[in-house]
């Protein structure tokens, strides 16, 4: 369950104050696959970052999995992100110095877990996205679609309850984008993972349970 109440976010530069989100209310029940759409600069990514605890709201409260996360300090937020959240980015953000399986293992490094166990879970996650044969490759040996599948494996390896995807198909052609959507849909149905996805693509949005539209920092539907 994601519960945003009266969330506002403003960015202040030297001279002007920009309002990215205005008194936004949104609640996402467990197991929902929600998509967020809107023109560029409407605050979609800001909203996602606030849900992912990598940005703080200027006003309002965020409750994730029943926990009042807005009041958490640095290391508690880190732990919460590690256990409850998984991120998928438009430009993948894999670490090029690490092999595919090491990239997937990354979230588990910050848990108390043995190396063998980590490796096993990482290979499971790769299996789920159909890339177990690429485990020892490096990111720059992969296609865009494969990179995004690795990123998904990384997002799900720690079994988070919530996955936050920021335009996961934005850098991919429609065929690869379709594959990614299939994987996300299966995650949602098989594991019951809550997924919040920002997208520009109506077709992708139609594949989700519910669509929320933003415009100028306000919810329009």
């Amino acid at each position: 369950m994601i519960e945003l109440t009266n969330v506002s976010k403003s960015y202040r530069t030297d001279t002007i104050e920009t309002l990215a989100l205005q008194r936004l209310n949104l609640s996402v029940p467990d197991g929902e696959f929600l998509s967020i759409m809107g023109p560029s600069g409407c605050g979609k990514s800001t909203l996602l970052n606030i849900m992912g605890l990598i940005d703080e709201p200027s006003e309002g409260s965020v409750v994730l999995a029943g926990q009042p996360v807005t009041s958490y300090n640095g290391s508690k937020v880190a732990r919460f992100r590690n256990e409850q959240l998984g991120f998928i980015f438009q430009s993948f953000h894999l670490i090029n110095d690490l092999s595919v399986v090491d990239n997937v293992e990354l979230p588990l490094l910050y848990r108390k877990m043995g190396g063998k166990e980590r490796r096993r879970l990482a290979l499971d996650a790769l299996e789920r996205v159909g890339l177990s044969n690429r485990a020892t490759h490096f990111p720059n040996q992969l296609s865009g679609g494969q990179k995004q599948r690795v990123a998904i494996a990384r997002a799900i390896v720690g079994r988070p309850n919530i996955i936050l995807a920021d335009e996961p198909t934005g850098n991919l052609d429609s065929h690869m984008g379709g594959e990614i959507m299939d994987i996300l849909t299966r995650l949602n149905t098989d594991l019951g993972t809550t997924i919040v996805m920002v997208t520009h693509d109506e077709r992708m949005a139609r594949m989700t349970h519910r669509l929320v539209r933003l415009s100028d920092g306000e919810r329009v539907s």
């Binding site: 256990e83 991120f87 979230p107 910050y110």
Partner: peptide, 16 residues
């Protein structure tokens, strides 16, 4: 920089 950000996003705290 982006590696550090990714690690933080996935649960690394400043100390790690």
């Amino acid at each position: 920089r982006s590696e550090i950000a990714v690690r933080k996003a996935f649960g690394a705290d400043s100390r790690s």
